[in-house]
Design a protein around this nucleic acid. Structure first.
Lengths: 208, 208
DNA sequence: AAAATTTTTAATCATTTGATTAAAAATTTT
DNA sequence: AAAATTTTTAATCAAATGATTAAAAATTTT
């Protein structure tokens, strides 16, 4: 029973390759994966990768773009919601991202290591500055600061702390599990706990 | 003006190789570095790597071992100090680790990606379970829980939050800097701020 | 069902890359 | 300073790896 997340319509070979590429790239990163690994994971002839995607780099680009847009797209939606309060946004981010990452736990480390290896190229495709700076979230944050509801004036600290509390455990998951003999279910339970706790912690940290 | 941290006694060729290997391995990881990259960084003939260290893997092992022991050795000392309170330990960890990582900012991502690529092999060399479970810190934490000074009973949440607040910003540094046009000095200033703030945040989160 | 097109396969290529070797250069020992 | 030892170099090797090719197989179109 291997099979990672995306296990839906692997009908076409093109989709089989993409699914396999995701699995292997997520686990080992671009540099450490061999095109033969992907072909084997997909159960397909090696030449098909080049037939459908031209090159390893092109295939990687596609996986990367989809991963990015999945990851920050949902963030943008949450941060830009006019109808939710700042507090509700924190709740939603904790809830949704823990669910999202739990399904594909390798994604955070994958994104971070690939950005490390190629920051200029990858970051220019990510309009993070705009997403954050032009967001409803930032407006609400600045209002809360002005109304003295929040003690910390720098939204960067706020976001780093929030995302750190959500994402960091997934990044150190191998260390935690190896060092405390946790099973996957126990780790997942721990993260479910954090869904509730993170918004409370954030409130305690920042609420005046 | 290249030159990363360890730039002291590069007198012998052996040390030159190790310094260069650190620089390249930290930046690109094991899989993405070529032995030729290291030789070039060191300004030495490629064959010298094999002459002094037998193989790329052996050289990597040495760098890895030194990096690990530097990273968790200092942690052990702090966690095992009988003379400091829990609160003081938090202050010391924030202070020392931010200083430590600021000097060699690639280390956290390096450690995490290499553990991802080879968890069994690398983690069995790291007695993290023992360091944490048998520490004075754990004793103090459990006492504080019993005395109702701390609301959160699970030391894992406490440690993850503390280390997340310290380490996570370094891991996402490329994203932060790329997305907000920060300069290195500004990022460093941000981390200096966090030295003071993290202990306060931790108190707010966990103190009854 | 014949022809045309698309997909898949096995074999092979060219480059990259970790490693070795034998000779040259430098250093140390006698 | 001659001999022995250690260190460095240029050349080369062998295996790994991304990619291509030409033929075979499968599918679609006519």
């Amino acid at each position: 029973m291997s099979a990672s997340a995306s296990e839906k319509k692997d009908s076409t070979t093109e989709e089989k390759i993409k699914t396999a590429a995701k699995t292997v790239f997520y686990k080992k990163g671009f540099a450490a994966t061999r095109t033969r690994d992907i072909a084997e994971e997909a159960g397909l002839n090696l030449a098909l990768l080049n037939y459908y995607f031209r090159s390893k780099a092109k295939l990687f680009e596609i996986i990367m773009a989809e991963t990015f847009s999945g990851f920050i797209g949902s963030m943008k939606v949450i941060l830009d919601d006019e109808k939710t309060s700042l507090e509700q946004k924190v709740i939603t981010i904790a809830e949704r991202y823990i669910d999202f990452i739990s399904i594909e736990p390798e994604i955070p480390t994958f994104i971070l290591t690939e950005i490390r290896n190629n920051p200029e190229e990858l970051l220019k495709k990510l309009p993070i500055k705009e997403i954050v700076n032009d967001s409803v979230f930032i407006k609400q944050f600045q209002e809360a600061v002005q109304n003295k509801e929040i003690t910390e004036p720098n939204p960067l600290h706020f976001l780093m702390n929030l995302l750190g509390l959500v994402v960091f455990p997934f990044i150190v998951k191998p260390i935690i599990m190896g060092s405390r003999n946790l099973e996957t279910e126990q780790f997942d339970a721990l993260m479910q706990e954090r869904k509730k706790k993170i918004p409370i912690w954030i409130n305690m940290m920042f609420k005046a």
